[in-house]
Design a protein around this nucleic acid. Structure first.
Lengths: 128, 128
DNA sequence: CAGCATCCTCTTCGATACTG
DNA sequence: CAGTATCGAAGAGGATGCTG
């Protein structure tokens, strides 16, 4: 516990500004919320982590329940946030591939953490 | 990469149901969204992780910018979600303490992951 | 195949003021 | 100290239909 907490602290270089950072790191939570706070974002990132680059409809099939509108909207937002990269593969027929940027792929530990937490402390199938 | 991914997979016991789990783990993301999706939740959890049990106003001071209403509302929600525990310390004067449950404290790795990600891949002060 | 436009509803959040 | 009540603005997300 405390060892990992230390690890986080060590990330922050310098000395003077580190105090205020640990008292309140507003930017951190603001940024993550914009990424992980949206309903579909984490699921999309998860699929891209698991399967690598995917086309629009391939993604749509894997992210169960999502509509075209929400997928499009989410991808645009993820692109703007620099988490997802969009590449035009071919014009005829139209084919596109979405993949994670470095910034997006760096969310891997967070996604794992979320999955672990859900499995170990989730309410669903907890009694099963 | 693949080693840690494997670690996540190993968490899931049994064999038959594990396949569908990795194709789409909907419950996992649904549950976390209630924590990551709300503006103040993660900040509150963070403060409780860092400082342990805190009273209402102590929490209010540490979570910069939050109003009484939002703090109250967030705490109620976190309580309902089984992440935070509320304990009445004294009646006169009225004093309460909020702390993390096991389920809430188990979010520690996720919070660290988020902070690390923000520090290493955040947009704020990235060029600094 | 890969989207965008429109409409609509429900929720979230902030500001302000008041209570036991 | 530890909250609740009320109001209003903004945004998220779903349904449906259309486009290049």
């Amino acid at each position: 516990m405390s060892s990992e907490s230390t690890a986080v602290r060590q990330v922050r270089p310098g000395g003077t500004s580190s105090e205020s950072f640990f008292v309140e790191p507003p930017a951190a939570f603001d940024e993550v919320q914009d990424v992980l706070g949206r309903k579909w974002h984490l699921r999309i990132v998860y699929q891209l982590l698991e399967h690598g680059p995917l086309g629009f409809n391939a993604l749509k099939e894997r992210v169960v329940g999502i509509s075209s509108k929400m997928l499009s909207e989410s991808l645009t937002r993820l692109e703007d946030g620099g988490l997802v990269d969009r590449e035009l593969v071919s014009d005829q027929p139209l084919r596109v591939e979405y993949s994670l940027t470095d910034r997006g792929a760096a969310l891997e530990p967070v996604v794992w953490g979320v999955l672990r937490w859900s499995v170990e402390h989730g309410t669903t199938s907890e009694g099963a």
